[in-house]
Design a protein around this nucleic acid. Structure first.
Lengths: 207, 207
DNA sequence: CTATGTGAATTTATTCACAGCA
DNA sequence: TGCTGTGAATAAATTCACATAG
């Protein structure tokens, strides 16, 4: 294998492969070819091999990939080999949905803390986590929490982001449509539900 | 303006511009330059002009863009000039969050129906919409609903998708991590929360 | 003189096709 | 022989820089 910069698009796909591999493994399969995996995750086989070629030599020619080994390698690249703790800020419907989301376990995430500004929610337990007041956000780094999920109304998003940066959080998953500004050593990934819905009609053939 | 195929990435950004324009308009501004808008939406000015150049001549050299006019044009391109009705399938936390989401109004969407398979939820009102049984999905097209949002557990996603296709739905926003298969005249946009969170550690500098 | 619109250059990503290893 | 790994070719998207219109 030669040195390669890992393309962003490849990083985006690696978690998809990872989930596919976990599911296959649960089905008792322990070896898979790029074209089998391709069927499974709906990404073409050449693309999969190319993606893997950026990060290592994982397969055996004529045979395919050992699922356990490949899983381990991808986790290492994505830094998912260690457990990660995340905090959810904003325990409304969306925040609660995120806390209940079963899909995180695959990647070794634990929702370790939850915060809200509503006194009626503070102190209550949601999915086994006691909701704390947003003013308590500092302390997160000390507790081994390195990522946060912002699920507050748009108006509050920047303030929450500022507090998170202050608290030493280095990765933010942002559900608010508001652009949030952070220092460049902090990574923000935004999920903007409304804009995704908004481009759907464009692709719907006019009736 | 010359003929151009509209790049997918441009279609992805148009709703972002649109929201920025709506906010600016609410602030009483009625003209904006590409660089002003750039600051506002955090996409560089050249990119914005290039994107617009694919879809029309909207600006005035030396002056900028008329916000009302530009808003109208973008809406037309995205087919957001007509109201769209959407149905939410799965009224759990995520489905409820989607129904309560204020961001859709900007784009002229109305959540006009909600479905769940849980008899305890059927008949209840959620955000002014009465929850119906999933078996009632056929009827959607007749009610002018052309889009659906899948917020059910992964195992149920494909069945729901099949029923939606049967019901004449042409656009699906899918929150389930399961790949869903539909005829190619139906557009699916997937929001995969776990994979987005999963690539965050990659970008976090190792501590 | 300002800010658009757009070719041209560049960068990034995908697809192709096949050499080479088990 | 079967499937990987990867250069080379192609396609897609972004950035640059400037001629041009108001």
């Amino acid at each position: 294998m030669k040195y390669h910069r890992i393309p962003n698009e490849t990083v985006r796909r690696l978690p998809i492969y990872l989930r596919g591999l976990v599911v296959l493994s649960q089905q008792g399969v322990n070896n898979v070819s790029s074209s089998k995996l391709a069927d499974f995750v709906n990404i073409n086989a050449g693309q999969i091999r190319k993606d893997f070629s950026f990060v290592g030599d994982f397969g055996t020619r004529g045979v395919g990939y050992d699922i356990d080994w490949l899983t381990k390698q991808i986790k290492k690249i994505l830094r998912l080999d260690a457990e990660h703790r995340a905090a959810v800020i904003g325990v409304g419907n969306l925040g609660t949905a995120v806390m209940a989301y079963p899909g995180f376990r695959t990647y070794g995430f634990e929702i370790a803390a939850a915060f809200d500004s509503d006194p009626a929610k503070v102190g209550k337990k949601v999915k086994n986590v006691t909701v704390e007041d947003v003013s308590k956000l500092n302390s997160l780094a000390k507790r081994g929490v390195d990522m946060a999920i912002i699920a507050v109304p748009a108006e509050a998003a920047q303030n929450v982001a500022d507090a998170l940066v202050q608290a030493g959080i280095k990765g933010i998953l942002n559900f608010s449509p508001k652009r949030i500004t952070v220092p460049k050593n902090v990574k923000v990934i935004t999920i903007d539900i409304a804009t995704d819905l908004a481009r759907l009609p464009y692709y719907i053939p006019s009736s």
